[in-house]
């Protein structure tokens, strides 16, 4: 499905701000894997997702998706395979455009855009059905500007947009981090529902260890640009937050012991 092999990325190479974000990272995902990604700030989690999505070019290594080498493809070409939701609820939608227009843009992800109508009547009906899944009542506000929605609503909409056309791989970059706990839970529940129902291969970054353990069939832990722990199936199901903290400590020589954020 997805094979990331020996991928390197250094930001600001040769300057005082040099940051080795990924150091020979290897990762293989099977079809239908729902992987939660944890790790401290600067571990390279977001960089990993951005490299897969092609936001910046990688320095070395290979990224193979469904047998296709996408290592050097521009971001907009890779988009055909990928559904993405960002941490900032403002990033995933066009505020000045209507809900149905946003969905229509997402519905044409990876396809040639021509002079046909941007939104057709038939698709609007499909969108209304899909919006009902969210349970936020957005189906009655199809022609409202997205800018009028709350952060949680926008994030739920972005999630729907990312999965409207089934992606080969869904990339969730801390997509509930900017939401209040209740809304975060709602969005996470919707995420789980969509991912499991459509059997989507998913990489989800989270700072919440409980969520990381509760969701998905596999968990990976990153530290200093490498994957330091990888567990799936039975092994993952048995893990506790305390186990994870211990792993962190082992890997980082104790420096994570006081990382309170990890306990959240």
């Amino acid at each position: 499905m997805l094979t990331v092999s020996n991928v390197y990325k250094t930001f600001n190479k040769g300057t005082i701000n040099e940051k080795k974000a990924l150091r020979g990272l290897n990762l293989h995902l099977k079809e239908g894997d729902f992987v939660t990604v944890i790790g401290g700030n600067g571990a390279g989690k977001s960089t990993l997702l951005n490299m897969i999505a092609g936001v910046y070019p990688i320095d070395g290594g290979k990224i193979i998706l469904n047998g296709e080498d996408i290592s050097r493809q521009p971001e907009h070409k890779r988009a055909k395979h990928l559904g993405r939701v960002f941490q900032d609820p403002m990033f995933g939608t066009a505020a000045g455009m209507q809900i149905d227009e946003n969905l229509a843009l997402a519905y044409r992800r990876g396809e040639k855009r021509g002079l046909g109508w941007g939104v057709t009547k038939e698709e609007s009906e499909v969108y209304a059905e899909k919006l009902k899944i969210l349970g936020l009542g957005l189906e009655t506000r199809m022609t409202s500007k997205v800018g009028l929605l709350s952060g949680g609503q926008r994030q739920a909409l972005t999630l729907l947009m990312a999965t409207l056309k089934n992606p080969n791989l869904l990339l969730l970059d801390e997509h509930t981090a900017a939401l209040d706990p209740k809304t975060a839970k709602t969005v996470l529940d919707i995420t789980n529902k969509i991912v499991t129902e459509n059997n989507l291969t998913t990489l989800m970054i989270t700072h919440n260890m409980k969520d990381a353990l509760r969701l998905g069939n596999r968990i990976i832990m990153m530290h200093e640009g490498r994957i330091i722990f990888d567990a799936e199936g039975e092994e993952k199901a048995k893990l506790t937050v305390a186990d994870l903290l211990q792993k962190f400590e082992q890997a980082s020589g104790g420096e994570f012991a006081n990382d309170r954020m990890m306990l959240a």
Partner: peptide, 28 residues
């Protein structure tokens, strides 16, 4: 008419949110 088409919508979205429309496969 033009800004109601698929290309036109993509242009409007480019003015709105470049990051988003790139993620949706449009060459800005």
């Amino acid at each position: 008419w033009f800004f109601g088409t698929e290309i036109g919508s993509a242009i409007r979205a480019t003015g709105n949110n470049e990051k988003m429309i790139r993620a949706l496969g449009v060459d800005i």
